[in-house]
Design a protein around this nucleic acid. Structure first.
Lengths: 186, 186, 186, 186
DNA sequence: AATGAATGAGGTTTCATTCAT
DNA sequence: TATGAATGAAACCTCATTCAT
């Protein structure tokens, strides 16, 4: 028997640590050599668990979208008023703002590096669809355009707050989004 | 009379052509050799006019952000219905989507490099305020929160379309934004 | 009774299977991982039985060269016409072509490594002489120059077919060699 | 203007030096780094002149087959008896025996490395065809099978003499080849 | 001013081999 | 004995950049 290792478990461990490193350096600027050093393993080990840099990264996207999805799930079950639901969404945004920024930073890095294939790859898409579906359940609507509007808005909120910080009043923005949704839903 | 070569003029010519190439290939995926070939000059010439790839790219973005600001101005003067104004905003977004992306990419670069001072610095702020003021004039409102909401939304639209492309129906989104504004303005 | 595992026997089993794999993929193009997978064992097991890839390969070639010598023997006893003898020689060449190639590849390895002493050593000579003597018996001649000519020709045929493959018509070549021998032998 | 270099001339210089290095080390065992070091240039320079290791090697094959072809050409023009022609062929073999060995060693290296693509590539084929055509002219025959027979024989002679050295009497072999050809040609 | 040859560090990936289990 | 995880050197190749001309 070889060194005892739960292959899947160790893969997860590597992905967990990798996320922070990718968030710090981006995709294109992070070499496999450097990632290996940060994870304190050899490049060979990295390639033992993941067939290529791209697949490693896609596994990371898959894995994290699941983790974050689990965090948002509890919101779905509860029976709340629209105002309370929007409040919950904003609370969630505030809590995971940093993670959202990392993801978006990586998105731009991929775009600039000409790696559209990854963005269009299934892992990233699935992650996006997951969020969409959660939003649908929370807001109890089937209108895709509304959902897209809210996704777009959340995305913009996170990015724009990099530039403007707390000049953007979350309290007022929450009111505006609520007003918009009240006019449209139900 | 000697042939007068305006150094600045030639730099601009190079940037002009470069923009298209960067837009097509992205930043990391475009090598200086390839760029030089596309511009029909030598790599040496490129380095004669720009000290590095990064500075060339930054000069390009800053050059273009000015051009864009100038282009949006004419819209302000016209007397249009709200529906027509929103249509104009969307037309503008569609036309300059690529430029917006590059601009936002720079934002993330700066954030990642810890150069918040530049984001908070005057040039970046002024650019943002310029857009805000244009929006205020176009929409004929003084409500900062509304303007912020629209800015956030536009920002999100551009970013989200990187991920989702034409899955996001601009026609439907335009309707939704119009509805939101109609309820709030006037 | 404990299960008796004959180490030497298992080595031979591994070599036997390895030969086919090497014949298909060549030496450098075949990694130990791939070989292990083809043999349905682990890389560790391979290294348990052979100290290195090279030694495994050399063991393989030396093992097979013996097998060949044994196989050619039966041909000698038969009483055949010259045409039939030449046909047999060609059939033999065709069947063991791959093995001949490996054998010759080893020869060049040794030459390049400056290990002329091995080529001039007894094992290699004996192997050569064995083939010579077989040829003498098959062709029923004592003329060393003729035998050398045929040995040279066979050697060249195998090597040249690496370059030219089936462009070299074995049927025609067989006719030519037969003609040559008919003119010289009796 | 850049450093003044006749690109084609310098390519030839690099190929010239490369031949010796490839002959010494073989194809698979010679890395581009090592080759660069032997040529006293950087790897970058190597890739500046040749797009890949394989193409460099194929250029080398092309180049050398031409050089050697030029050496053999003078033989063609002369009006000689068959005996004299065969004598010339043997004289040529003797003179270039070392080069032939190098080529054949490289051939085996390629085969073992699984690089059949190179052998089947046009450069190597063309080189072979060149020799064939020269032989045709020298021997004044159009019979491809005869030419192949002689090519095979020459190839075998060179290889077999590695094993047997001067035990193989060139004088006797020359006589035998002459006899064979006299029976077949005219 | 303009060229493109030259550099060499660094990119991703493969591989023979070792060793804890 | 047998396993396969782990290693890290080294493979081919690309690239931003420098510099002689």
């Amino acid at each position: 028997m070889p060194k005892i290792v739960d292959r899947e478990e160790y893969r997860r461990t590597l992905l967990l640590k990798s996320f922070e490193v990718f968030a710090k350096k981006g995709y294109a600027a992070l070499s496999m050599r450097e990632l290996a050093k940060e994870l304190s393993v050899s490049t060979g080990t990295l390639y033992h668990y993941f067939p290529s840099k791209q697949e490693l990264f896609e596994a990371l996207v898959s894995h994290y979208s699941m983790l974050e999805a689990e965090k948002i799930t509890p919101l779905v079950a509860q029976n709340l008023s629209l105002a309370e639901k929007v409040k919950l969404i904003f609370a969630f945004i505030e809590e995971y703002e940093t993670a959202f920024r990392h993801w978006t930073a990586i998105l731009f890095d991929l775009e600039r590096a000409g790696l559209k294939e990854i963005i269009e790859g299934s892992a990233w898409r699935r992650s996006n669809e997951l969020y969409s579906q959660h939003l649908k359940q929370i807001l109890a609507t089937d209108d895709d355009d509304i959902i897209n509007f809210v996704m777009i808005y959340i995305c913009g909120l996170v990015v724009h707050r990099i530039e403007r910080g707390d000049e953007i009043s979350l309290v007022e923005q929450e009111k505006l989004l609520l007003q918009f949704l009240q006019a449209r839903i139900k």
